[in-house]
Simulated scan of single mutants.
Amino acid sequence: MLVDSHCHLDFEDFAAERDAVIDRARAAGVGTMLTIGTKLSEFDQVRAIAEAYPDIWCSVGIHPHEAETEADIDAAGLVALARHPRVVGIGECGLDFFYDHSPRDRQEAVFRVHADAARRTGLPLIVHSRDADDEMIRVLQEESHGGALKGVLHCFSSGRLLAEEAVKLGFYISFSGILTFKKAEELREIARDLPADRLLVETDAPYLAPIPHRGKRNEPAFVASTAAKLAGIRGLSVAEVEALTTENFFRLFDRAQRPVPAA
């Protein structure tokens, strides 16, 4: 069984055929999906998807792109939303200094609110980081000193130092279709060297479809291509990577329940 640890099934890209997309994922061996919150103003739609499908879970959070435009919320507000039994993580949140759609100080402030909520709930923090390695290391270190904090750096495409420092702090690293891209050799070297018990795979669908699907709209079924690439990088069988990343997912996202095998 595979897990797509990060996708966006509420996005308009899937509205016309969401059931078919989910069916294709299941047919490809994807037994669990985590659909991610990026705006509190649209959290109801994210939660409704997780409520409708037993093998789909969700998170609640504010993407750094939305940090300026989303209504102010404190950690207590996030904690309240996270009480829903289908919510298994806090985020997606973090720092994006590539696009800078929100002011950097605002991104950091909102990120720290999410870290506080993650500590209060015991749920993992789902972290987006782009072109902000030094700042991300600093914030993660400071927030981890404030109390137990666990989480994942999703769709990892940053440098080795950030990956290693995050692992030291107890975080997991999730790889997307970028791992299959021709120019991603440095990323593949990082994926080869990280501890096996900290690896996850994801699609970030509808974005970043892996080879051989690159150029298409991504969807959870395509996580199989990323897992196969990771297997080759690590010198493992595909079945071993499937088992490894699935075990890692349920260890980190421990509120999520494993699917019940068909009779």
Rank of each mutant, 00 (worst) to 15 (best):
I173N: 10
A109V: 02
A132M: 05
H213C: 07
F156T: 08
V46P: 01
A166F: 12
Y53R: 06
D55Y: 09
L200S: 04
A76Q: 14
D254V: 00
T203I: 08
H6L: 13
P103A: 13
L230T: 01
D10C: 03
R112A: 07
G215D: 09
G77K: 07
K182G: 03
D100I: 03
V46I: 14
A205K: 02
D105S: 14
Q107M: 13
L162G: 10
F253T: 01
F14Y: 14
T35R: 04
L179K: 08
A262S: 13
A227L: 08
A82T: 07
L40T: 12
A163H: 10
E242H: 06
R83E: 15
L252T: 06
F175E: 11
D197G: 02
V88W: 03
A118L: 06
R86M: 06
V21L: 04
D13W: 00
V127C: 07
E17K: 12
V167S: 07
I126M: 14
F98L: 12
L162Q: 10
V167D: 06
E108S: 12
L162E: 12
V87D: 11
V127I: 15
V3F: 03
F43T: 13
Y207H: 05
Y172L: 07
V127L: 14
E92M: 10
V139T: 14
E42D: 11
D55C: 11
H128V: 11
V241T: 06
I190D: 03
F98A: 08
Q141A: 13
R83V: 00
T121M: 07
G91E: 10
P220I: 02
R251W: 04
F11E: 08
A132H: 03
A256H: 05
R188E: 09
E108T: 08
D204R: 03
D55F: 13
P212N: 09
I90H: 09
E66M: 10
Y99W: 15
F43C: 07
A16E: 13
A262W: 01
L153N: 09
L9H: 03
G177F: 04
T35Y: 12
A118Q: 08
G151S: 10
T203Q: 08
A209C: 07
E68V: 00
A224H: 03
A184M: 04
G235P: 07
V79W: 07
A231P: 02
A239L: 08
R130L: 06
V110R: 15
H6A: 12
P85V: 08
F156D: 11
W57P: 01
R119P: 00
S129L: 00
E68Y: 13
V46T: 08
H213T: 04
V223Y: 05
G37T: 12
A256L: 00
H65S: 04
T180W: 09
A67S: 15
A227Y: 06
H6N: 14
I211V: 14
E186P: 12
A231K: 05
R198F: 05
Y99H: 15
E247K: 12
A115Q: 04
P54N: 10
L187I: 11
D13C: 00
S158I: 01
H114E: 12
R47N: 03
S174G: 15
H145D: 14
E51W: 02
A20C: 09
A28R: 11
R120W: 02
L162M: 11
A148M: 08
E240C: 00
M136T: 15
